[in-house]
């Protein structure tokens, strides 16, 4: 059992949770994720380790409530526990002394860039962070990013904060002005694809963190397979980061649709139950 120490709502429908998991905290590297299962009947879902404190033995998870499991996770209170957490899983992000790096985050994806920023910062890279969201209140951890990067640019679709428009617009400006060595993008598929298309003609190394459905997260099932460079790769052990210019985003998008009906059914049942419970009170 993994105890929840602290919980905080960081944006509408987005929660941050600090969890007691000393071994995972100690071995965490930027880019790693965990797979958790809330209870006996729960599904195993992957979440990026958004931060870790090896001394205190804690990890921070940041999640958006979009389905049954994440909604349910959001109902758990500090002091209670999550039944299973396995990790840290996945490859670590390659952290070198690159020079000028740009991190591009869309929505909740932003927070998962935080450990990468921390690591790049330690290696004395110059880092520009571009965070995009639909509106300003969906921009998470902006101040944390500001504290560690050389430059933070916000973009919102509605112009409620920072530049109006998409992250790609801001990224293009940065690339035109400076010699960017690497771009790392995390966020919705469409955003990552747009970033990949944009950086390709510039010939800038670009990594994207893929988010296929996973089951056990240790390379044993093949659920998480993605097509990269025309080849099948397992995101949980060979990723989740891959060369953006090689990724087949179509296959990924199609595969993420696969359980749509079941996800909706699950969610409906969960809401109904929750409603019943609340009405009784």
């Amino acid at each position: 059992m993994y105890k929840i120490l602290k919980k905080e709502t960081v944006a509408p429908q987005v929660e941050a949770m600090i969890i007691d998991a000393p071994y995972i905290a100690r071995h965490h590297q930027a880019g790693n994720f965990v797979v958790l299962r809330i209870d006996e009947k729960g599904e195993r879902i992957p979440l990026t380790i958004a931060d870790a404190d090896s001394e205190k033995g804690t990890i921070t998870l940041l999640f958006q409530k979009i389905g049954k499991t994440t909604e349910k996770l959001g109902t758990l209170k500090p002091g209670t526990a999550i039944r299973d957490i396995a990790g840290p899983l996945g490859h670590a992000t390659p952290i070198l002394q690159y020079g000028h790096c740009v991190l591009v985050g869309g929505g909740i994806g932003s927070a998962t860039l935080y450990p990468i920023l921390k690591a790049l910062n330690k290696k004395n890279n110059r880092v520009t962070v571009i965070l995009g969201a639909r509106t300003s209140d969906l921009l998470v951890w902006g101040d944390r990013f500001k504290a560690l990067s050389d430059e933070v640019l916000f973009t919102t679709d509605d112009g409620s904060s920072g530049l109006k428009g998409l992250v790609t617009g801001a990224l293009k400006d940065v690339m035109d002005k400076s010699e960017v060595k690497i771009v790392i993008a995390v966020g919705p598929i469409r955003m990552m694809q747009a970033v990949a298309e944009l950086t390709k003609p510039y010939n800038i190394k670009t990594l994207v963190s893929l988010n296929p459905v996973m089951v056990e997260g240790t390379g044993m099932c093949g659920a998480c397979r993605v097509t990269v460079g025309g080849k099948t790769r397992f995101a949980c052990i060979e990723g989740p980061e891959f060369d953006a210019h090689e990724v087949d985003f179509h296959v990924l998008a199609d595969r993420l649709e696969f359980y749509r009906e079941e996800e909706q059914e699950s969610m409906k049942l969960f809401k109904k139950k929750k409603c019943k419970r609340n009405c009784k009170k």
Binding site: V215, E216, M220, C221, G222, A223, R225, V226, T227, T232, V251, D254, R255, E257, F258
Partner: peptide
Amino acid sequence: NLNNVYFASEFLT
């Protein structure tokens, strides 16, 4: 990698 192609290990797991 089409939808509804399972590897046996995933299906059975």
